[in-house]
């Protein structure tokens, strides 16, 4: 039935042992971070490091969320959320529309546009960050959500992905829609969008994490602590000079920063897999 090799006896134990070991290696640092976020500063700085959670969970998280170092963590989480959602929704919307144009409309220089979009794949944010900063600054976008989102909103990868998806949709379906009387907009909304929903879900997961994890760009474009995002905010919490680092609070912040992407993966993965099973082309 399936191509899997059936294992019995010692084989089962060996494979499971391997998996458990792998998971343990990956999870241990996260566990340490969690433990560190539940003890007080004194317990953390005196060796050996504690390996069981302490009793300061609520204190630390409360302090992180509502006091923080430069800005309260809830504000940075909100900023990150706005940025990540803005980037994700924007990227999906823009790329699905450009892919629609490139695949279904015959206009002059169609392929030129396609290759121009494709070429930008080779230019990650870091390469063009100085000119981008210059432009953003010139437009007065520093310390604003627009400035955080807009420069990251175009996506060649997603455009390419949607293009490939649209190319697999049979021409007859397009023609059937034409005979049924659906114009370009109706076809897009009624046929193409629903047929792309699994890809949209997959891209949402990937792009949300991409947006959430942005570090360099927010670091450049936001100087006002109230506009800081969580990922760069963690770094900002580490003081320069002689101040004492509140490690438990920093760790609590790290745990909180990890939470949204994890939730997105858990919930969207459900939808994504369900969509995959249901889809048919």
């Amino acid at each position: 039935m399936s191509g899997m090799v059936e294992r019995r006896g010692i084989g089962v134990w060996l494979t499971h042992a391997g998996l458990v070991l792998g998971i343990a290696i990956i999870c241990f640092p996260i566990y340490i971070a969690f433990v560190a976020s539940t003890v007080d500063q004194a317990a953390l700085v005196t060796p050996p490091m504690p390996l069981v959670p302490g009793g300061h969970f609520l204190d630390n998280y409360h302090e992180a969320l509502f006091v923080g170092a430069n800005a309260p963590v809830w504000l940075m989480l909100a900023n990150s959320m706005v940025m990540a959602l803005g980037i994700t929704v924007g990227k999906i919307a823009i790329s699905i529309i450009s892919a629609y144009a490139i695949v279904y409309f015959r206009f002059r220089f169609r392929m030129v546009f396609f290759w121009m979009i494709f070429l930008t794949l080779m230019l990650p944010v870091e390469v063009r960050i100085v000119p981008t900063y210059e432009v953003a600054a010139g437009l007065g976008l520093l310390n604003s959500y627009t400035g955080l989102i807009l420069p990251l909103i175009a996506s060649a990868t997603a455009t390419f992905l949607f293009r490939q998806l649209f190319l697999t949709i049979p021409d007859e379906l397009v023609e059937a829609a034409r005979v049924d009387g659906a114009g370009p907009v109706r076809f897009f909304i009624d046929i193409l969008l629903p047929m792309s929903r699994t890809n949209i879900a997959a891209l949402f997961v990937i792009l949300f994490i991409y947006g959430w994890n942005q570090y360099l760009w927010p670091l450049l474009v936001t100087t006002d602590p109230s506009m800081n995002t969580i990922v760069m905010g963690i770094k900002q919490m580490l003081p320069t000079g002689d101040e004492v680092v509140e490690w438990p609070v920093v760790m609590a912040t790290a745990m909180l920063a990890m939470l949204p992407p994890v939730l997105v993966v858990i919930f969207m993965q459900n939808l994504f897999v369900k969509g995959l099973v249901e889809s048919e082309k």
Binding site: E172, A177, V179, G181, E280
Partner: peptide
């Protein structure tokens, strides 16, 4: 005229049904 204005209906070889409907 566009297909929809011609008062025709067409049946395709691979059926061309909308898979999500």
């Amino acid at each position: 005229l566009e297909p929809r204005e011609r008062d025709i209906a067409m049946v395709f070889q691979n059926y061309a049904l909308y898979p999500h409907m």
